[in-house]
Design a protein around this nucleic acid. Structure first.
Length: 785
DNA sequence: TTTGGTAGGTTTTTT
DNA sequence: ACCTACCAAA
């Protein structure tokens, strides 16, 4: 009987990637070029052909959803192979009971052991095993039942530190921007000391100080933030050779998807694991070991959270042979696109060609021409929404095979979803909005999770304070204050005070009774922790705390909805228990903290999908509507005078276009509501960068040749003759020059990129404590002598 | 303690 | 236009 090969149906480049065994390999994979196929087939190939132990494979994906899909596809591949081996027929011809049995056997023997997940989920798993071996430079320690603080937890902690503890001026030291600076530091791999060194001024010192106190608070709560899940493993690996050596030995084959969106800290983590900390390239031993990364610099869209696609461009230097493209054996390019029509690919290629910082790569269409791209100019955002929904209805009624799930509406900002939702709702069309307010951000869900977190991690005082009087049990502010003050004075977690009967009696007086009852409730379930399943604990807490009862007693429609959400959380816990082997509360809590809205999206569902361009990465839809294509909205106004940011917006547009398989619609409004006022909108620069002959306009002249004046047009839209008169364009700029900017104040040039016409400069502005990349041709800057 | 009102911020994107 | 957080009044 013939055997299907894991290489069947792959093109030569894909085969090269799949057959790669040891050593480094960079796979430059354009949109829709079958990179997920390359990844999954390679993992299967490693196990089947090269006899690699599945437990020695670490594969990092960008979302939990991608991880889940990858696991499913690998399971499918193994099942297909084994169907031939065992029964001599294709998997599809087996009875469904046999298929189920085969797949579960594959799971038990193979896929169960693969380490596949996001950076955050994989390394939180590793921290649950090893964090007690870690101590930070200031002697802070955590235990394995640590909490993971979400963005709002962190935000309130930050505000507390800035306003209450340090008494800083909130206007000068906005907690949000400080939070951002600290997150950025962790993404760069900076300790507070490093941060101060990079920003040696008052602001830098202050932020470093907040950073230290913030870490104190996290440690006091036995909690970590998102960034710590990556940053702490790096520090642990650096300080403890044995721990590093253990994991280095364990993970002999490392694969990273979406490598263009890794940040410095993530890179360092991968580097440490791959090399065991060896920095001399000549000393690296690649025997039975590989690093395999897949990415596309043109789809790098997460710069704002520290992603740095130069890491991908430097892969050849970091791990590879560094030879030119034609000679290199450590790089392979997947350039054939199997997803979209030739028209869509040509549009995407033309657009992205306007970027300067790229790896040379052209998407080659394999499909036929297809239909032209349709561009619609609407009077305002409501008309735009009506156009989109009409088009969806028309296409659906024309072809009975088309389902609602074939359509996606993609926009730049979450706030843009509303008009589309209104119109879809009016017509009774089923839809899902991805992102926006997360399920787990709802108040009632956070309350219930706080109960669970305190049970798992009594030191989590933030969660404890959240629920101490929810539902109302007569523990007032003054009582809480007294208890907290005692805890602070003794430098112990609030729980230590609460769980000590004598202390409570002394401090709380008349309120002692409800406090003690509350403490007993938690204590009871803490004792069950190791024995009981997450669902049992959840059920018990909901009952004993009276939370659900209280909600139901309110009798309002809103409370009813909240109660339903709580039940939905319970269902999520049950589902988790069934799907994962681990029914423990800690496992469920980790999963919840790292879950995202996207993870629940069903691509084959009968619903129109609405989401941001960022969320759409990695997905594909037969019909895509790219809406709100207006200057200032997309590209976003914050990117208009920063060339590097503008290029990122263009990559985002490229991502959007390449989501479409069959048909692409683009639309914009000539007037749009913004913060409640009507504003006149100008068509996006990106519209003028698309090839005219591929676009069908709903009315002539819908795309103006030149953007109107008033708004600073990006440089490529400015006719050459005009450019010289604009600004200090002819001026020479060099490192060290000082300059003045109306918004950012005085600054000093730290880098000059490019030469001739295409020069950009990096300027450090001490007064805002940030570095900006500017285009001297358009930025309103003045040289200071 | 709870309610209600209003001022102020918000819209870039997210694991 | 909408939401949140904070403050004043009961």
């Amino acid at each position: 009987m013939t055997q299907v090969s894991l290489l069947d149906g792959l093109n030569p480049a894909q085969r090269q990637a799949v057959q790669h065994f040891c050593g480094p390999l960079l796979v430059v994979a354009g949109a829709g070029s079958g990179k997920t196929r390359a990844l999954t087939h390679r993992i299967a190939y490693l196990v089947r052909q090269y006899r690699v132990d599945p437990a020695e494979i670490l594969a990092v994906t960008f979302t939990n959803k991608a991880a889940r899909e990858m696991k499913e596809r690998i399971e499918q591949l193994f099942a297909e192979q084994e169907a031939y081996e065992q029964f001599g027929i294709p998997l599809a011809e087996l009875e469904s009971a046999q298929v189920t049995r085969l797949k579960s056997s594959v799971y038990q023997r193979i896929t169960r052991f693969l380490w596949i997940g996001t950076f955050h989920s994989l390394f939180s798993r590793i921290l649950r095993l090893d964090i007690e071996k870690y101590q930070d430079p200031k002697g802070r320690k955590w235990t394995r039942n640590f909490s993971i603080f979400d963005e709002s937890d962190v935000q309130s902690l930050m505000k507390e530190i800035v306003t209450k503890q340090l008494n800083l001026d909130e206007r000068k030291f906005d907690p949000k921007s400080i939070r951002y600076a600290i997150s950025n530091a962790k993404n760069q791999g900076w300790t507070p000391v490093d941060l101060e060194r990079h920003q040696p001024n008052f602001r830098g010192r202050t932020i470093a100080q907040v950073y230290e106190i913030y870490q104190d608070q996290l440690a006091a709560n036995n909690a970590l933030d998102f960034d710590d899940l990556i940053w702490i493993p790096v520090q642990l690996f650096r300080q403890n050779d044995q721990v590093l050596a253990y994991w280095h030995q364990n993970f002999r084959h490392i694969l990273v998807d979406e490598y263009q969106d890794t940040n410095r800290t993530q890179y360092e983590l991968i580097r440490l694991l791959t090399t065991n900390g060896e920095t001399r390239k000549s000393q690296l031993n690649w025997q039975n070991r590989s690093i395999f990364v897949v990415g596309d610099a043109d789809q790098s869209i997460y710069r704002f959270r520290g992603a740095d696609f130069t890491i991908l461009m430097e892969f050849q230097d970091s791990f590879g042979d560094g030879l030119p493209d034609d000679d290199t054996r450590t790089m392979v390019k997947l350039e054939e696109n199997y997803r979209s029509t030739a028209t869509i690919i040509r549009a995407a290629n033309t657009l992205i060609d306007n970027n300067t910082e790229r790896i040379e790569k052209v998407l080659k269409p394999t499909r036929s021409q297809g239909e032209p791209i349709f561009c619609y100019q609407a009077d305002n955002e409501m008309v735009e929404a009506e156009f989109v929904v009409n088009a969806i209805k028309r296409l659906k009624s024309k072809d009975p095979n088309v389902s609602w799930g074939n359509f996606a509406i993609l926009y730049r900002t979450n706030a843009q979803s509303r008009p589309f939702e209104e119109v879809l709702m009016r017509w009774g069309i089923p839809y899902t909005v991805v992102g926006g307010q997360r399920f787990y951000d709802r108040k009632e869900i956070k309350d219930v999770l706080a109960y669970l977190r305190v049970v798992a991690n009594p030191a989590d005082s933030l969660s404890l304070l959240r629920i101490i009087n929810v539902p109302r049990r007569g523990i007032g502010k003054s009582t809480i204050d007294k208890l907290t003050q005692a805890a602070t004075a003794l430098n112990v977690p609030l729980w230590e005070i609460l769980s000590d009967e004598t202390s409570v009696h002394t401090l709380a007086g008349r309120s002692a009774k409800p406090v003690l009852e509350f403490a007993q409730l938690l204590q009871h379930w803490q004792q069950q922790l190791s024995r009981a399943k997450a669902t049992e604990i959840l059920e018990g807490l909901l009952r004993d705390s009276g939370y659900l009862e209280d909600l139901k007693a309110q009798g309002t429609e809103e409370a009813e909805e909240r109660a339903q959400n709580v039940m939905e959380l319970y269902n999520a816990a049950r589902q988790f228990e069934e799907e994962q082997g681990d029914p423990s509360l800690e496992a469920f809590l980790s999963n919840v903290s790292l879950a995202s809205d996207l993870d629940n999206l069903q691509e084959d569902s009968e619903k129109v999908s609405l989401m941001t361009l960022h969320s759409s990465k990695g997905l594909e839809f037969p019909v895509v509507f790219l809406v709100g294509m207006e200057q200032g909205l997309f590209p976003n106004f914050r990117a208009l005078e920063d060339p590097a940011a503008l290029e990122e917006e263009r990559r985002l547009c490229y991502v959007g276009i390449t989501r479409a398989k069959e048909k692409l619609f683009i639309s914009y409004a000539s007037e749009r509501r913004l913060y409640g006022n009507r504003e006149v909108a100008i068509p996006s620069l990106f519209l003028s960068e698309l090839p005219k002959e591929l676009i069908e306009l709903d009315k002539p002249g819908a795309i103006p040749r030149q953007l109107s004046r008033g708004n600073t047009p990006p440089i490529s839209a400015v006719p050459k003759a005009q450019r010289a008169t604009r600004n200090s364009y002819l001026q020479q700029w060099s490192v060290g020059d000082r300059l003045q900017h109306p918004q950012f104040g005085q600054g000093q040039i730290t880098h000059v990129f490019g030469n001739g016409e295409r020069v950009t400069i990096a300027v450090k502005f001490p007064s805002i404590g940030q570095q900006k990349i500017l285009d001297p041709r358009i930025a309103p800057i003045q040289k200071i002598n």
